[in-house]
Design a protein around this nucleic acid. Structure first.
Length: 573
DNA sequence: GCCGTTTTCGGCCCGACTGTTTTCAGTCG
């Protein structure tokens, strides 16, 4: 059992404590889970050393549970709690505006134990009769359920990606394969994925299948045949593996990557050109001879197209562009020189400014921007003016000492009236300013748009952070006129953020593409709250690629000198 | 359940907002 799995169990404990009505225990379990996640070492080793209490937030009781988990892979205590609170009850808390207290009352007074039962209770107007609930609450609950249902079955890319990579690596390392790749919507970097698809090329498929089902995270085998197997992981994720021989690897990869719409169009083109395309290769119509199939690029070339990155394959014009040899040169991880949205331990991040800077350097960046929360966001440790200004000096000294530019920015709240959460003369002392909305999400469209436009008219604001505020599967974005925001961004030279936090990916692919078409410059921020979150950059770059963004469209590809010039120019025009 | 310049019990980042009330509980970040 690895750290991530142990952390997952501790998070589940935390949710169950919520249902028990004990927020302190919830917090204790959450803190322990976070510590385990962040731990630079293997928890199993600490168990062996008898050193579990060196983990912050882990005391006697949690240590005991971790030992049991590591030793047996199970927790009797957790299983008891699961009996008491069925999974459906935990899911109820994922409905916006429904928290633990409501869940407990809905269960006690209406016998609601699942999403379906909650829906029925709302539709039959049984909720509005409860003390403290009314007509409005009932409507909000129904809206919330619709959102949860829409997302059900699909998980955020950021959740699936590390799991998928781990399994692919597991297959790769043991031999028996000559190639392993992620496929499906995961390979296309869609913001949510329904399941994980993995393709392996091998001449001994049986051995690969054995390896696959033996992966430590596999909880049950759903199906297993000669070339395809499906399993369910402990967390409920379904993973499909397909194994094909070398000569059809490219065709299989193309086919299993999709999208469906892209493939349909591609097959139609193949027919026009006198071929047949399927997952085994491209075949000549006349004599059924295999003419392409071992490598993916060869399939596109044979059909008269430039090979295209998986992220583009949504039938959004990429086939036409490939036929006319005018595919964009998409931004890639190698182009990224820095990150502009990172929280430090001064506010609600977990790493210090120094640790952040060192991590950035280690990852091959050329600079880093740190952006803590502003004073109004007290719960997230928003910085007072004094602290903020002191940290400006700290960033300067750190830059000198490391010989690595650390930009001092801030993620400043856009207040209800559109003003920014620090006075202009304070903002002017920062290297740059991200303005973000963190409150009053339910304003109507005109109010919210005016609020954001007012903020953007402040010359100190360089970047609009997570412009729609949506949380994938949890909360829709606030109601805002993005066309007007983009026009304003273009004319004022304000950058729009592509926030790479797994739940956010905001702006999303389609809106990023709209922004590019309108001549708006984008800026990627991972919104990292710990060093591990630097990995979010891959999700953001994947989203940028889905939006057809090129290096020139993204500030993070610029040198530090050009970045500084952009920020300075914005503030003097 | 954890933790200790408030130290072995009694706190645990807390303020704004919403929808329900007529003074507040629950949710969110």
């Amino acid at each position: 059992m690895n750290n991530a799995e142990i952390a997952q169990m501790l998070y589940e404990f935390a949710e169950l404590m919520d249902l028990k009505g004990d927020v302190f225990k919830r917090n204790a379990y959450r803190k322990a889970a976070q510590s385990v996640e962040d731990l630079g070492r293997d928890v199993q080793d600490l168990v062996a050393e008898g050193n579990l209490d060196s983990i912050p937030g882990v005391g006697e009781s949690i240590a005991k549970k971790i030992k049991e988990l590591v030793g047996t892979g199970r927790s009797t205590e957790l299983e008891k709690l699961r009996q008491e609170f069925p999974a459906g009850l935990v899911q109820l808390m994922s409905v916006p505006d429904v928290g633990p207290r409501s869940v407990i009352r809905l269960r006690q007074e209406l016998g609601v134990n699942s999403l379906q039962e909650l829906k029925e209770a709302a539709l039959s107007h049984r909720i509005r009769g409860l003390k403290g609930f009314g007509e409005r609450s009932e409507e909000n609950i129904l809206k919330g359920i619709a959102l949860v249902e829409k997302q059900s079955g699909r998980m955020p890319l950021g959740h699936a990606y590390p799991i998928a990579r781990d399994i692919a690596e597991h297959l790769r390392m043991r031999g028996h394969t000559h190639a392993v790749s992620l496929a499906g919507s995961l390979r296309r970097m869609r913001e949510t994925v329904g399941d994980i698809d993995i393709l392996a090329g091998s001449d001994s498929p049986d051995k690969v299948m054995d390896l696959f089902v033996a992966h430590p995270q596999v909880a049950s085998v759903i199906a297993r045949g000669g070339t395809k197997a499906s399993v369910r992981l402990a967390d409920g994720t379904q993973v499909d593996l397909r194994v094909v021989p070398r000569e059809s690897y490219g065709a299989a990869l193309q086919y299993f990557t999709g999208s469906k719409e892209h493939n349909v169009k591609l097959r139609r083109i193949a027919i026009q050109k006198g071929y047949k395309l399927n997952e085994y290769g491209v075949f000549r119509k006349d004599d059924d001879a295999l003419v392409a199939g071992s490598d993916e690029d060869g399939i596109y070339r044979l059909l008269g197209m430039d090979p295209m990155p998986p992220e583009m394959r949504e039938d959004r014009g990429e086939i036409e562009a490939a036929l006319e040899h005018r595919l964009p040169n998409l931004v890639s991880m190698e182009d990224i020189k820095g990150d502009f949205h990172v929280h430090t331990s001064m506010s609600d991040g977990r790493a210090t400014m120094r640790e952040v800077a060192e991590e950035a350097e280690r990852r091959g960046y050329r600079y880093i921007g740190v952006t803590d929360h502003s004073q109004s966001l007290r719960i997230a440790g928003g910085l007072s003016i004094d602290y903020l200004l002191a940290s400006v000096e700290e960033a300067r000294q750190l830059s000198d000492e490391l010989g690595f530019p650390v930009l001092r920015g801030a993620e400043v709240d856009i207040l209800e009236d559109g003003s920014l959460d620090y006075p202009d003369d304070v903002l002017a002392q920062l290297d740059y300013v991200i303005g973000s909305v963190h409150s009053r999400f339910k304003m109507d469209r005109r109010e919210m748009t005016d609020r954001v436009l007012t903020a953007m008219s402040n010359e100190e604001m360089n970047i609009l952070g997570h412009p729609t505020g949506r949380l994938i599967g949890k909360r829709p974005g606030y109601d805002i006129d993005l066309d007007r925001v983009m026009d304003e961004a273009q004319s004022k030279g304000v950058l729009l953020e592509l926030n790479g936090f797994p739940d956010r990916l905001d702006l999303n692919d389609l809106n990023c593409r709209r922004a590019k078409e309108r001549g708006v410059m984008m800026c990627i921020g991972t919104d990292a709250h710990s060093l591990g979150h630097f990995d979010n950059m891959e999700l953001a770059v994947g989203t940028a690629r889905r939006a057809w963004l090129e290096p020139g469209d993204i500030l993070n590809t610029y040198s530090i000198d050009r970045v500084r010039k952009v920020f300075t120019r914005q503030r003097t025009t």
